[in-house]
Structures are given as C-alpha cells and as structure tokens.
Simulated assay, not measured.
Amino acid sequence: MLVRTPAIVLSSHKYGDSARIVKFYTASVGIKSFIAKGAYSKKNRQNSLFIPLNQVELIYDDRQKKSLDFFREAKQIAHYKDLSSSPFKMTIALFIAEMLNLVLQEEEANQSLFAFLSESLLVFDDKEDVFSDFHLWFLLNLTKYLGFYPNIQNGAKYFDLQEGISSHEIPTGSYIAQDDLILFEKLMNLNFLTQTENQFSKSQRNSILNTILKYYEAHIFDFRHPKSLEVLVHVFE
C-alpha cells in the first residue's frame, strides 16, 4: 500500500557514490529513514529538499518493511521565507535539527508532536525580528511531548532537574535556584507564537540554554550535547 505523509527532514548523509540517507520525522510513522538515489547528480532537482527542517510530502510503499526504504516521490509542501538565508535563523535551525535527531527515536505516529514541530517552524520562519528566544521556548515545550515537562510551583526555592518538580528543600541531585530559577519560570510563561519582543539578554539566553540542556541530560538516556551548540553560542555573542 502506498503511503502519502507530510514529513520534516532531520538529517541527510552521503551514502555510496551518488545517494544519501535522509532521516525524517513523519506524521504517519514517526522516525523513518530513506535512501535518496542520485542525490548528488547535477540533474537531480531534489537536492534542496533535504535541507534540515524542510517540510515535505513523501510517497512510499509501506510493504517493503525495511529499515531503509526508497521513497517514490518527495515534494516540498512548506516554503520558508528566510530560514535558509538568514545566518541567525540558519544557526538556530541547525541546532534544533541536531537536537531533534538526538531525542526523537519513536517509530510510531504522534500527530500532536508533528503539528507542534510543523507549526512552530513556520512561525519561527515568519518572524522578521523577534525570534532570538525561539530555541529556548521550542526545547522547553518539546518536553511536553517527550514526557518530562517541568512541574513548577510558585514560591518554591528550588527546581529539581532530575525529578522535574519544584522543591522547598535543597534536592540531593542536580537543581537550579535563585536567578536561574527565575529565568526558567519566565521562559515557562513565554508564548513565542504571540511574542512581540525578545524577553532575554544574550547572557540570560546562554544561562537558560545551559539549564535546559542539563534538564534533557537528566531525562534522556545517553544524551549528549549537540555539536552545533558552540556555533549557536558564538553567533549570539
């Protein structure tokens, strides 16, 4: 049976002399990788489709039941305005794509997660100026779909990163408090989709990002910091 599904490109790597392996997050089955034949041919017009975070429609035969399939057709279904031309947005996008590669593993459909990814990226691309907080908001809200969204209570002095809950006593493991907790709570109250001005300074963004990465590390087995982190921090210095 042929499957037609929207999908988001997560990564693309060379495979052999003329093909590449493209990893997608699809609306129909979650994570799925395909072999794109002739990807490096000058006549192949699909090369630009496989840029990370591109939104495409795939048609493939699900009867193949292989770890690596060949898709029959791929076409772009969302056209970004400047996600691939703005240096700042490109840096954020590559960081987001690497993070998604690290944390998305499920090979099953999750329509609400796919909708969150798709809609968030479109809003991010559409904003001309107010987008510097996007990666922070995105990673925090992604935890809703990964199963460890923070449970924070007003008035608590500490937030236990390992348990994901507020605490009035000093946690035994990794935690945040004082200024770091205030910034984290401020991020939780942020709605990027309706945001009209950036809320954090450069140093605050770095501090919050460090907290978020520690939080992911505490909840995802074998989590490692993305290689693009250094570039992201450097660009926003």
Rank of each mutant, 00 (worst) to 15 (best):
V22D: 05
Y25N: 01
K43W: 01
K23D: 04
A27Q: 15
I35R: 06
A27E: 15
V22N: 03
R45P: 08
G38D: 05
V22I: 15
Y40H: 00
V22T: 15
K32G: 01
A36N: 13
S48P: 00
G38T: 03
P52H: 04
F34M: 04
A36Y: 05
F34W: 12
Y40D: 01
P52Q: 03
I31A: 06
S28E: 14
S48D: 10
S48N: 04
A39K: 02
I35K: 10
S41Q: 13
A27H: 06
I31L: 14
T26G: 04
F24N: 12
S33H: 07
V29K: 12
K43G: 09
S41N: 09
R45G: 10
K42T: 10
S48F: 08
V29W: 04
K32C: 04
A27G: 09
K43P: 01
I51H: 03
K42A: 13
A36R: 10
T26L: 08
V29H: 05
A27I: 10
K42V: 05
T26V: 04
K23E: 07
V29Q: 15
N44R: 10
K32P: 04
Q46D: 12
F24H: 10
V29R: 08
S33C: 12
F50L: 08
Q46M: 03
F50K: 14
G30S: 10
